[in-house]
């Protein structure tokens, strides 16, 4: 019962050989071919997973974006609880309607922190752009040192410092609030102030871990694409945390 066609030798030969190209060699890491030529040369028509040097980068970037989408849902869930809690009141024993929500005064240092975080996003973007600067990429491919790492690392380091500065600023803000006797458990609004700033700070700690990994990778990794992935993903993560922060901060500052 030959109900299945078993592939014969020519069939197997027809399947294209997979090129194990990871961007490390043999081909320039930026692809200059125009496509439209011979068999398999058209970049876009080639199968998934084999589109050449940027393939691994694209994969990691997409994974990160999905993770950030999940993270967005996490914050949105908290924010939607925020909206409900803000307006929820109750009747006390004397039938008075009580809404306990007392807006938490935003420590002014948070404005400074926001500026620092935005600035750090700029430095991170500079670091990320450096990783894809084509003349440098070619230079490295020709064996003329590692200009990319050299030019990008300072920007990553700057981001790292600004990130730590931001966290220090947040700690200062918490301390200022504590001195005004505003704690996590004080009031529904302070619940949210601390919850939002804490969870965001935890995310930034993860981001700082990512930045340190990227910085280490810039020196340790020999593969250009690995370095590109590290910096690129750290940068997108960092930018998202910046955007999330602006969103959350505006919420705390104007919608309490």
């Amino acid at each position: 019962m030959p109900a299945t066609y078993t592939p014969s030798k020519p069939d197997l030969d027809k399947s294209r050989l997979h090129d194990n190209d990871n961007g490390a060699g043999r081909r320039p890491p930026t692809d200059k071919r125009t496509g439209g030529g011979g068999e398999g040369d058209n970049w876009q028509s080639r199968p998934q997973g084999q589109r050449g040097p940027r393939e691994r980068l694209g994969r990691y970037r997409m994974g990160l974006f999905f993770a950030l989408a999940g993270d967005l849902m996490f914050f949105i869930a908290i924010v939607s609880v925020f909206f409900v809690a803000r307006t929820t009141g109750h009747f006390d024993a004397y039938n008075r309607y009580i809404n306990e929500w007392l807006p938490t005064a935003i420590p002014p240092v948070l404005w400074l922190n926001t500026a620092v975080l935005l600035l750090s996003s700029v430095t991170m973007e500079l670091a990320r752009r450096r990783m894809f600067h084509e003349p440098d990429v070619m230079e490295e491919w020709f064996g003329l040192g590692r200009p990319i790492s050299r030019r990008s690392a300072p920007w990553v380091a700057a981001t790292l410092c600004l990130g730590l500065l931001f966290l220090a600023g947040q700690a200062l803000a918490w301390k200022q609030l504590a001195m005004q006797r505003v704690f996590f458990a004080s009031n529904p609004s302070s619940h949210f102030f601390y919850l939002i700033t804490y969870t965001h700070a935890i995310h930034l700690f993860l981001g700082i871990g990512g930045l340190m990994l990227a910085l280490w990778g810039l020196y340790a990794s020999r593969q250009l694409e690995t370095r590109q992935i590290l910096v690129d993903c750290a940068a997108w993560y960092w930018h998202s945390m910046g955007v999330f922060w602006v969103f959350l901060f505006l919420l705390l500052a104007y919608f309490q």
């Binding site: 849902m73 996590f184 919850l195």
Partner: peptide, 29 residues
């Protein structure tokens, strides 16, 4: 999964705060 588990995680976090950090996200007066 990506959409739902994140929301669950937020819900769990709030419950944890109610249990250990004396907040009252889910607890009425």
């Amino acid at each position: 999964s990506i959409l739902a588990f994140s929301v669950l995680l937020a819900a769990l976090l709030l419950l944890f705060c109610d249990r250990h950090l004396a907040t009252s996200f889910y607890l009425p007066v």
